[in-house]
């Protein structure tokens, strides 16, 4: 294992040492990155819009409405998580989980979407959530403004495809993310869409050289799509507990393989 990854690394070093390739690659990336910035901006605008409605429902004490808005609101956040995570203070404020706090749900520091999710589903109430909701909206708006002035680092953009798969593989595939509402399949949708978008943007740069690689990646994305499709319900998805054990395994294998494959995307594009 260690030996083979070392061999892989020296092969990569060879690729990287041909400086011309790297140079050319980063020039070629200008357009995909500009396009990706538009994609992220659109998503964060949608996130602000949806969060505004979600927060209004929470503050009005409309539990059912807030529950209905929770999952769709998060999808645009999940799609752009690699960029949102560049601002770790905001990512913590918006999307951290009870596990991140020693007193878990009872911890006064526990903020954001999942704090509200806990109140809505576990307590069936919006009591005490008003300040949390206000803070969430403020953080989401802050995220929008920071993204607007961000120069997107190419390696973060291209690496983002793998990062999204790592997130799913490490802590989402088990249904830990939305543990009160069980709306995890919506988040998956956002994560996979976000990763696939990045692959689509760089596809023209590697289509010739990396045809086999792209074929494998596409096949795994397709597996994910067909699997998730089985659980579609209206505009969204049924709850995570309905996911069959077999399909969970299929998804897990696809995610792990996508994480493996997409982790080479940066190197393939000559990005250090």
């Amino acid at each position: 294992m260690r030996i083979s990854s070392f061999a892989g690394a020296s092969a990569l070093a060879l690729v990287l040492s041909s400086g011309a390739f790297a140079q050319e690659a980063s020039l070629d990336l200008v357009e995909p990155i500009a396009e990706y910035k538009i994609y992220v901006s659109e998503n964060v605008a949608k996130l602000v819009e949806d969060t505004t409605a979600f927060v209004a429902a929470v503050k009005a004490g409309e539990v059912d409405k807030a529950k209905a808005l929770f999952a769709p609101t998060r999808v645009s956040y999940e799609a752009i998580e690699p960029i949102a995570e560049l601002f770790s203070d905001l990512d913590v404020a918006i999307d951290s989980r009870a596990d991140d706090y020693e007193k878990a749900e009872a911890d006064p520091e526990f903020p954001g979407f999942h704090r509200i999710e806990y109140g809505l589903w576990e307590k069936n109430s919006t009591e005490g959530l008003e300040p949390v909701a206000d803070k969430l909206l403020a953080d989401v708006k802050e995220l929008e403004s920071r993204i607007a002035s961000l120069t997107f680092p190419p390696e973060k953009v291209v690496g983002g495809a793998a990062v999204l798969m790592e997130e799913v593989a490490a802590t989402k595939i088990s249904g830990e993310e939305d543990r009160y509402s069980h709306t995890d399949l919506w988040d998956f949708r956002g994560n996979f869409d976000g990763a696939r978008k990045i692959v689509e943007l760089v596809r023209p740069l590697i289509a010739d050289k990396e045809a086999d690689f792209l074929k494998t990646v596409d096949a795994n994305f397709d597996t994910v799509d067909t699997t998730l499709l089985k659980y579609k319900d209206g505009d969204g998805y049924v709850t995570y507990d309905k996911l069959s054990e077999d399909d969970r395994k299929v998804l897990a294998a696809a995610v792990n393989t996508l994480a493996e494959d997409l982790s080479t995307l940066r190197g393939k594009l000559g990005l250090d």
Binding site: S5, F6, L12, A13, A162, E166, A170, N256, A259, S263
Partner: peptide, 13 residues
């Protein structure tokens, strides 16, 4: 340590 993720991280990084 998130070792799977680490094993998928470029050597130089």
């Amino acid at each position: 340590n998130f070792v799977e993720r680490w094993d998928r991280t470029p050597f130089g990084e």
